[in-house]
């Protein structure tokens, strides 16, 4: 994963509990433009020993800065409060943008639905729709006085004849508006929704009851493009008698390489089959796309670039 070291160029409240953070390249010597991103992408920010994913709010086309909007969650794991404390000029390590919530290129129309801070990836979609003249309709539900980016969105929708905006500050009005909007879209419309889990569930349920096919419904699911870091375990190498610790977030392949045990490999994503290793004891947690279901059930081999161990110990024929 490519990691960018960026500097906080700006940080300000854009709603009572939401701060917008602007990240830029550190030195003028570097190429100014940041990697482009697919609308709806997120970056992962490391801070306070945690890594949190945040949606980028721009269109993604050759950006000079990355903008995120972060809502303070006092009951969260502390990631949002750490981001809220970012100071101007502070250096931040950021993973390159990853896409897990892209627009659908063949959509005849884009029905965008945002609840509260869920507006962030939706705004990215809206900007891209404006840039390419795509027809899009946004339903934005928020608490009065707490809406992020509302002025931006109003200006964007006002400037383009193919963008439409409906604002909601009451749950009941939103339900009525949603039911109505779902029933007047032309065939071929795709729905993208982001917001609190309960909000997304109710939108999807309403769309199903209006007979929308599943293939036209898209939810933001953070981190779905990444495998989780997994539990730590120890790999025992039967032939050499060595033991190799595999921490959470480190792959078995990386741990073996770090211990001077080379393993042939190519894709490092569980696809190509190069890094297959025989297993003599234990139960691999198979996460690859290479082994067949019967291979996996046999528990005699493991693709060490992505797969791990169900138990604290795993014995390999190495």
């Amino acid at each position: 994963m490519n990691v960018l070291e960026l500097a906080v160029a700006d940080s300000k409240y854009i709603a009572p509990d939401i701060r917008e953070i602007v990240l830029r390249r550190i030195s003028a010597g570097q190429q100014e433009v940041l990697p482009s991103y697919i609308p709806g992408s997120h970056i992962v920010i490391e801070c306070g020993g945690r890594a949190n994913a945040y949606s980028l709010t721009g269109s993604g086309d050759s950006p000079e800065e990355y903008r995120i909007s972060v809502q303070l969650r006092p009951d969260g794991r502390g990631g949002s409060s750490a981001v809220h404390r970012f100071r101007h000029g502070e250096r931040v390590k950021v993973s390159g943008p990853r896409s897990a919530f892209p627009p659908v290129a063949t959509a005849r129309r884009h029905l965008l639905i945002a609840g509260g801070i869920g507006i962030t990836p939706i705004l990215s979609h809206l900007r891209a729709a404006a840039a390419w003249g795509r027809e899009a309709e946004l339903l934005y539900s928020f608490r009065p006085g707490h809406a992020a980016h509302l002025e931006d969105i109003r200006a964007l929708c006002g400037s383009s004849p193919s963008l439409f905006l409906m604002e909601f500050t009451e749950r009941k009005a939103f339900r009525t508006g949603l039911a109505e909007a779902l029933r007047r879209q032309p065939l071929g419309t795709h729905l993208h929704v982001c917001g609190p889990l309960g909000f997304m569930d109710s939108v999807i349920a309403e769309a199903r009851s209006a007979c929308w096919p599943e293939s036209r419904l898209h939810l933001e699911a953070f981190g779905a493009a990444d495998l989780d870091p997994g539990k730590p375990f120890t790999a025992h190498l039967a032939r050499t008698g060595r033991s190799v610790d595999v921490p959470s977030g480190t792959s078995l392949l990386e741990a073996l390489e770090n211990s001077g045990v080379p393993v042939p490999n190519l894709c490092r994503q569980g696809v190509c089959g190069e890094c297959r290793i025989p297993v003599s004891k234990g139960r691999p947690e198979h996460r690859d796309l290479y082994l067949s279901e019967s291979d996996k059930a046999a528990n005699t081999t493991i693709m060490c670039c992505v797969s791990r161990s169900h138990e604290p110990h795993l014995e390999l024929e190495l």
Partner: peptide, 9 residues
């Protein structure tokens, strides 16, 4: 499957 998971960069 592999191609569908490829990310930019």
């Amino acid at each position: 499957q592999f191609l569908m998971r490829l990310q930019p960069g």
